[in-house]
Design a protein around this nucleic acid. Structure first.
Lengths: 220, 220
DNA sequence: GATCATTTCTGAACGCGTTCAAATTCGGGG
DNA sequence: CCCCGAATTTGAACGCGTTCAGAAATGATC
């Protein structure tokens, strides 16, 4: 029965995520996970090559939940500011249970060799899923976003989202109220700022920003 | 002789920084530092409570060097774009020897409990020194920056600088050419973007951005 | 049911950052 | 010169993430 193997894997992952949530990253030792799941340490390593891979498991799960919840909410909102708010707020919502875990997660994720590094190979799928949310938020908005912005905007918004996530990690206000405030304030501002692209003097600056983004994105 | 104590401290710090530069963060173990400096492991810990504090030593040294070099270069440049370029390029210059060390440094620094966290208490002095560079770059520029921007701009630029540093860490192009390109492209764009603040329709958006920044910066 | 390769599992061991009780060295007062 | 409290130094020990040789369970083949 191949299910037995998968069962052990799930057991370890479930125990780990539960402990991450309840007692944080550092106190959740591999030995403690193994003991709680009633397997040997080596057995946990048979399924997860490192503690980081257990973090990746969490990352994927949170990401999937975000995509699901955001898609739901986006059905009812049509202006760009509202859609941005929706995506960002739902993002913070799904991360909420892991707030105390956040700084350790980011310290792990920021290392280029980490499987959870959002810019890295190992999380291509997760990043694409996350990018798709922003693409949907932009493409589905009415009034429509200026054509020339439509291609690069989702990626820039996703980058901004990484910034919001960083802000959220450091946000010690109760319920991370300041992050909510930032989202509520920034989303309409971004929408209004983008609408300025029609003003002739401003348009050129926008073009140059996009040009710079594109030239820097590619290597060389 | 109190100098003997200081001598040991310096010896440990010097050996550590040299090893950080030459073989990176992970291979520079506390045991290796102790052995190279010909002291016991415990003795190294007598002067530095953790490996992180040795990283802090490096951080302060790099910061001081940046302040010094930047102040020098700023004497000869007067337009905002040029001054920004100068500060950013010199920043990258002084970090250069530690590029391979960068990701480990940032992973350490991003943890709120770390002494090198740029937003944390322990590096107030270093942050103020860094902020002062940007304040000088803004205040000393001619033509002058719009009055209403002058107070908050240095902090925002410093924040952007943190972003550039992050980009630099991930930049695997030879000599970090892409980071240089980003700086050369972004600095004039920022200067031009700021000059748009005079356009009536744009001015209001700027005001709102500043208002948001201020309201989010303070708690609650 | 016996055989055997493969998958799954075990726990001791390694090197790491860090801690700490004890040993050593130092410097000033008798 | 000697003594003593403080500063400095030592190295064994702890818990951590990770590794790995080998034991146990599994399932395909006859």
């Amino acid at each position: 029965m191949a299910a037995k193997s998968e069962q052990t894997r799930q057991l370890v992952a479930d125990v780990a995520l539960k402990m991450f949530r309840e007692i944080g990253f550092e106190k959740t030792t591999m030995r403690a996970i193994a003991q709680e799941a009633e397997v040997s340490v080596g057995n946990a390593y048979y399924y997860f090559a490192s503690k980081d891979e257990l973090v990746q498991e969490l990352y994927i799960q949170v990401q999937n939940e975000h995509a699901e919840v955001a898609a739901q909410v986006l059905n009812d909102v049509h202006d760009l500011a509202g859609r941005l708010k929706a995506v960002l707020h739902t993002g913070v919502d799904v991360m909420a249970p892991y707030h105390q875990f956040g700084s350790d997660f980011i310290a792990t994720a920021i290392r280029p060799t980490s499987p959870v590094n959002p810019f890295g190979e190992a999380s291509n799928a997760a990043r694409e899923a996350s990018l798709a949310i922003f693409r949907s938020a932009v493409d589905g908005s009415s009034p429509a976003v200026a054509k020339k912005l439509r291609e690069d905007l989702p990626e820039l918004l996703w980058l901004a989202y990484m910034g919001v996530a960083l802000f959220w990690v450091y946000d010690k206000s109760e319920g991370q109220r300041r992050t909510r405030k930032l989202i509520d304030g920034a989303a309409p501002l971004v929408a209004r700022g983008l609408s300025l692209a029609k003003i002739p003097g401003v348009s050129k600056v926008f073009d140059d920003v996009l040009g710079l983004v594109r030239s820097v994105k590619e290597g060389s």
